[in-house]
């Protein structure tokens, strides 16, 4: 899995490309923690190229959400693909991790 980020006007966009599984989940958490430590507490995780997520990956996203909120911000997800959407719905975490069609829309109404 490959991570990248870009600081936009009102948020930081994190891209996580590949499989978000037990191997990459701790790396996502570390990556987002570093982005938050760099001064961005409004995070959008763009899942456009995240073809797969398991419960470890979901746990990492929840950990990142908590870290963003502890820093006074929030974390939202965007461009969720079918397998990730399925895992979010089956675990009822779609109510906790708010999904937006695109990264641009995630904080557009705040």
């Amino acid at each position: 899995m490959e991570f990248s980020y870009e600081v936009k006007d009102s948020y930081a966009e994190v891209k996580a490309d590949g499989r978000l599984n037990m191997v990459s989940a701790p790396k996502l958490r570390e990556f987002v923690t570093d982005v938050i430590a760099g001064g961005s507490n409004r995070i959008v995780v763009n899942l456009e190229n995240t073809a797969f997520m398991d419960s470890s990956g979901l746990g990492a996203l929840i950990g990142c959400l908590k870290a963003a909120r502890q820093a006074g911000g929030d974390l939202r997800i965007a461009a969720v693909q079918p397998q990730v959407n399925m895992v979010l719905k089956l675990t009822s975490m779609d109510k906790v991790l708010t999904a937006y069609p695109t990264a641009e829309e995630a904080f557009s109404n705040d």
Partner: peptide
């Protein structure tokens, strides 16, 4: 719990 970071695997 909603904010738990593990424990969902078996149910899934």
């Amino acid at each position: 719990a909603d904010d738990a970071e593990s424990g969902r695997g078996l149910a899934l």
